[in-house]
Every structure is written in C-alpha cells, then in structure tokens.
Amino acid sequence: MILTLLQNGEYEAARVKSLQELQTNQDNAELNYYAAWAHDALGKEDAAIPFYEKALQIGLPESDRKEAYIGLGSTYRITGAPEKAAILFQTALQEFPQNKALQTFSIMTKYSLGLEKEALEEALILLTETTENTDILGYKKAIQFYAQDLDATFH
C-alpha cells in the first residue's frame, strides 16, 4: 500500500502511513526506506537521512538498495555533506559497478567536492558509453582518449 502511494506521487499519505507502521515495526528496512523516500520527495531531506541510513543498515533487497544508495547519497550532497556522499557512492559502485545512475550521482558529487576536472572526464566517458547519438558515437574513440587528460596538449 505504501509503495503504491509513493508510485502515485501521494507522498504525504505515504509519509504518514510509513511513520505509523514504523511505530510497531521500527526495524523493518522496507518501511524505513519508504519513509525516507516520502520525506525526500516532500523536500524534507534532513528528515529522510536517518531513514535511508537505517534501511541500508538493516538490509534491503538489491533493487531497493540501489535506489536507497542514490537517494541517500544525493541527499547527503544537497544537504552539504558531499564527503559522506562520495564515501557512500564509492561503496555503492563497488557493489553495483555498472549502474549508470549511481555513476551519474557520483559524478555530481565529485563536482560538489571541487573535483570538476575528474567529474567532467567521467561524465564524458559515461556519455560515450550510454549515448545512441550517432554524431557523438562517430567521435567516441577520440572523446574517450581526450577525456583521460583534458589538460593534455600535443605538438
């Protein structure tokens, strides 16, 4: 029921329902994740953090764990804790190294940490790996080569 509320964008109802159910089942990872999701969607990022953390600590199924990593890492980043986000995304990417959404949020975190060059390099590689745009794909090899060191010059 709570998942349906979340999927339908009924975030306040999902928040209230998840908090009610957590009163009697506080160690339920899924309920904590739903509470985090609802708070996050309502712009209550600071309130979402402990629910995300607890859900991940207790243990979530793989698909929810990926989403919780993204939610928590993104929330850390936008609430002024990009260092925490970077550590979390590093852990998440060890577990899910091919997940392009995790890679994207990790890139944004690197930017927030002042690692603009590294972030741009990774973003260019990710672009060439995921695009279907034939104009970009025509230069894939060159883009990937130059992305390895954007400051390099050749004479």
Rank of each mutant, 00 (worst) to 15 (best):
residue 137 L to Y: 02
residue 147 A to G: 05
residue 146 Y to N: 10
residue 132 E to I: 09
residue 145 F to N: 11
residue 144 Q to C: 10
residue 123 A to W: 12
residue 122 E to V: 03
residue 122 E to T: 05
residue 140 K to R: 12
residue 129 E to N: 15
residue 146 Y to D: 07
residue 135 D to I: 02
residue 127 L to K: 15
residue 148 Q to S: 12
residue 141 K to L: 01
residue 128 T to A: 11
residue 125 I to S: 01
residue 125 I to G: 01
residue 133 N to I: 01
residue 138 G to V: 02
residue 136 I to F: 05
residue 124 L to Y: 13
residue 136 I to V: 14
residue 152 A to M: 10
residue 126 L to I: 07
residue 128 T to K: 08
residue 124 L to R: 12
residue 131 T to E: 03
residue 138 G to N: 13
residue 146 Y to H: 11
residue 141 K to I: 00
residue 124 L to P: 09
residue 145 F to Q: 13
residue 139 Y to S: 02
residue 138 G to K: 08
residue 151 D to F: 14
residue 145 F to A: 13
residue 151 D to Y: 15
residue 130 T to I: 06
residue 152 A to E: 10
residue 152 A to R: 12
residue 136 I to S: 04
residue 140 K to N: 01
residue 148 Q to H: 09
residue 143 I to V: 14
residue 149 D to I: 04
residue 141 K to A: 05
residue 132 E to V: 09
residue 144 Q to E: 15
residue 137 L to D: 01
residue 151 D to T: 15
residue 123 A to F: 13
residue 135 D to G: 01
residue 133 N to E: 07
residue 150 L to Q: 11
residue 131 T to K: 05
residue 127 L to I: 15
residue 137 L to V: 03
residue 130 T to C: 07
residue 145 F to S: 12
residue 149 D to Y: 06
residue 148 Q to L: 07
residue 125 I to P: 01
residue 125 I to F: 04
residue 123 A to E: 12
residue 146 Y to A: 09
residue 143 I to D: 02
residue 139 Y to W: 10
residue 122 E to F: 04
residue 150 L to W: 08
residue 130 T to E: 11
residue 136 I to K: 04
residue 127 L to N: 15
residue 124 L to F: 13
residue 131 T to Q: 05
residue 133 N to Q: 09
residue 122 E to S: 12
residue 126 L to R: 10
residue 150 L to D: 10
residue 149 D to Q: 06
residue 131 T to I: 05
residue 146 Y to C: 09
residue 122 E to Y: 05
residue 126 L to V: 07
residue 128 T to Q: 08
residue 140 K to M: 00
residue 133 N to W: 02
residue 142 A to L: 12
residue 128 T to S: 11
residue 138 G to C: 06
residue 147 A to W: 02
residue 122 E to I: 04
residue 148 Q to D: 11
residue 141 K to C: 00
residue 149 D to G: 04
residue 148 Q to G: 08
residue 124 L to D: 10
residue 122 E to A: 13
residue 133 N to F: 01
residue 150 L to G: 11
residue 134 T to D: 14
residue 144 Q to M: 14
residue 143 I to L: 07
residue 125 I to K: 08
residue 133 N to V: 01
residue 126 L to T: 06
residue 148 Q to I: 03
residue 133 N to M: 03
residue 152 A to K: 13
residue 135 D to H: 04
residue 123 A to Q: 14
residue 134 T to K: 15
residue 125 I to L: 07
residue 139 Y to V: 00
residue 152 A to G: 05
residue 124 L to E: 13
residue 131 T to G: 04
residue 139 Y to D: 01
